[in-house]
Each structure stands twice: as C-alpha cells, then as structure tokens.
Design a protein around this nucleic acid. Structure first.
Lengths: 163, 163
DNA sequence: TAACAATAGTTATATTTGTAAACTATTTTA
DNA sequence: TAAAATAGTTTACAAATATAACTATTGTTA
C-alpha cells in the first residue's frame, strides 16, 4: 500500500531535490512576465557578484562549465549580460549584467525574496537560523566527501594525452 | 568582485538545489558498483511503498508522469521491477520490486542512510528535528502556492478539445 | 443510461541539460 | 624551457524536461 504523505521519511538529498523543484515551479509562475524562463539563480548570483568569471559561477552554483558556456551565450544573445576578457588573466572572462539584464534581474531578485519571505513567515526566527545553519553545514560537508566530479575540475586531466 | 563562499546568501530554493546536487553526486560515488546509475530515489520509495501506482510515485517525488513511463520501462527491462494491472481499477499499474530489484535496493537504502548519518553526525538532535520540520513545512507550503503545473495533474485539461 | 469529464498511463516531439572527451589559449610550476 | 594547471570552448551523445495529443478506463451528471 502507498502512503500519501511519505515526504518526511525520504533521504535528505531527496527532500532537498523535491523542495527545489516545488520552489522553482512556484517561482517560474511568479516570473511568467519575464523574457527568460530559467537561469534565475545565475542572474541572482550575478547581481551580487558583478564581474565574476564563468568558473566562479559554476563553483558557486554547482553547474557544469560546458553547460555554462551555452547559458552565457544565450544571455549575451538576449542582451542580459556582457563578456569581457580579464586583461590580468586573459583566460578569464568577466561576466557583467547589462542595463537591461539588471532591470530584469531586479524583478527576479524581488520574486526570490518574496517567496523566501512567504516560506519564512510564521516560522520563529531561531528556526530560520537553524535551518540555514544546517543546510550550509551539510553542503560544506558534502563538498569534502568523495563525489563523481560533476562540477569541479579536481584533476580531471590526470590521464594525459591518451597515448 | 566575487565571493568564494556566497552560499549562505542564496535563496532557499537555490540552496536546496545545490544541496541535492552535491548529495546525489556523493551518493553516486558510493553506489558505483550498482548496475543502475540513477533512479535511486524511486527504488528507495518503492521499497517502502510496494504496489504503488506510477502516479503515486510521481506525486510523492515530484516527477513528471511522462518521464516516469520511460523510467519504469527501463527498470522493467533490467529486471528490477514488475508491472501489474490493478484489477479493481484497470487504469492503474501496480509497481513492485523483483527479488533482484529488492537486493539492489537494499544496498541503495543503506547508502542513503549512511550518507544521512554522516550529515547528521555532530549535529544536535534538536537541530536535526527542526531542520526536518522546516523543510517539510516549506514543501507543503509550496504545494499550496500557484505553480506551473509540472508534476501534478491539477485540471490540466480545462482547454477542452482545442476546437 | 448516455454524454461528458476525469484519471492513469502512453506516445511523440522538441528543447534543455548532463557528461565525457578533446581541444585552444593562457598562466603557473618545476 | 618543458610540463602541468586553469579558463573556456566545441562536439557528440545520453538523459531530463516540457507540451500536446492520444487510448483505455472509471466517475459524474443531466
């Protein structure tokens, strides 16, 4: 037989995945009027971290760097961001929001914040703090456990030149 | 300029998404010896909910039902699950683990549990409880907010017969 | 009870994302 | 200076996501 409210018995990672799916589904609804339908978290991140390199976005948001190339290309195409070579380290590209991108991103940030407020409403502040502490600690613990190297470049190139 | 530890300032949904990515990346590493490389949460769910319908899995794990068809087909093909028509409601298919599937799932459950234990270790029990309360409450709140109907079939067919 | 709506699952299609490998260009290290 | 590491790109393919239309079955109601 099948429980209807099984959520609380699920593993931590599964709970987190479901929470994020529900969250982004609600957020997308709130942001239907915006041109972009995704990449909200990247724009959110860029607003606070102007002139970031692509790799820094990847590291902070756990997104693969080959996926990031396409995302940035798309955001450049629709005029949300600009790409400038770092003259001090010509491998790096600084990513910056354009005026248009910044305007749209302000709305995105507002939606993120209002949704977070909805979720924190009626929740005692000490519980909010503990929730944040715990989720941060868990992510930082996980970063130090052996993983399939999905997002980070931990010596991916040890098998040099295949021949 | 770019912070290296920006995580704590991210929105709730983004934190949850990153946590789940890190979690599954570590879990996959632990389960490298297992034949399947994904669908761990579905097998975990089935172990406690034998004879579930596909729709019930979808509702509980927030997975789209068209994706579920392919996943179940695959799990049937590799001999992990069985599909039986519910004779009391012939639209429904009961999904059950086979002996092989159950054996593999036991290892999967073990890995989930040991990873959760790692994450809870050194964390006071009251914080563990609050974390779970909060994450459950948030998911249940989100289910009651307007969303793009990704996973659930809330009157998707209101625009009848297109003509 | 006949028409209609709702539900469970399927198929088809298109787009996006995930993953791996190999690659250029640049910088760092030995 | 040669080798290794880093940042980003390209290609190719597998898998996930999203939409729409579909069958079969069950529930509702005029």
């Amino acid at each position: 037989m099948c429980n209807t409210e099984y959520y609380s018995q699920l593993p931590i990672g599964t709970k987190a995945l479901i929470l994020s799916k529900l969250y982004y589904s609600v957020l997308s609804k709130k942001l239907e009027s915006i041109e972009v339908e995704r990449y909200y978290s990247i724009l959110f991140f860029l607003k606070d971290n102007e002139g970031c390199s692509q790799q820094q976005i990847c590291n902070n948001l756990a997104i693969d760097k080959t996926a990031m190339v396409k995302i940035i290309d798309y955001l450049v195409k629709i005029g949300y961001v600009r790409k400038n070579i770092n003259l001090k380290n010509r491998r790096e590209h600084f990513i910056e929001l354009t005026k248009k991108g910044l305007n749209q991103t302000k709305q995105i940030v507002k939606s993120f914040n209002s949704l977070d407020e909805d979720l924190y409403r009626d929740l005692p502040v000490n519980k909010q703090i503990i929730f944040n502490e715990v989720i941060c600690e868990m992510s930082s613990k996980l970063k130090n456990l052996p993983a399939t190297d999905l997002f980070f470049d931990y010596k991916k190139t040890q098998k040099t030149n295949k021949k």
